[in-house]
Design a protein around this nucleic acid. Structure first.
Length: 115
DNA sequence: GTCGTGACCGACT
DNA sequence: GAGTCGGCCACGA
């Protein structure tokens, strides 16, 4: 199974209205230090992957595709009842409120039908 | 096979 | 406190 595929599976497993960090996903993959790989994978993801639910440790969006802007991500998140605050020109999400537990997420991942 | 790279994270000045 | 530096590890050239 490709690393990327696993990343996609986990991202897809994030329930609506919740977000996860790169570090969490990397940890679930078994490599807590491989958060960068997660980002790399997400950059490569297709439209079926809700990449907007994946944010960095500070609760904000690092970068945007040329196709997709932070505003788009904010819109998507707001559609999921996630409150997005603007601060210093960056969009923030309240991690305490919306960040999913690593345990819960890993459970969700186990429940996934693996490809 | 080797080298460089990166949507990050944590430790250390 | 904020800025810097290294490490992690899969992927592509």
């Amino acid at each position: 199974v490709n690393f990327y595929q696993q990343v996609f599976s986990i991202v897809k497993a994030i329930p609506q209205g919740h977000v996860a960090t790169y570090g969490q996903i990397a940890a679930i993959l078994g490599s807590p230090r491989a958060a960068r790989m997660v980002g790399q994978a997400l950059k490569d993801c297709d439209q079926t992957v809700p990449w907007q639910r994946v944010i960095n440790r500070h609760g904000m969006i690092s970068i945007e595709n040329m196709e997709v802007t932070k505003d788009d991500q904010a819109s998507l998140l707001r559609q999921e009842n996630i409150e997005v605050q603007e601060r210093d020109g960056n969009l923030w999400v309240d991690l305490n409120q919306y960040l999913i537990d690593s345990t819960t997420l890993s459970l969700l991942v186990e429940n996934l039908p693996h490809d």
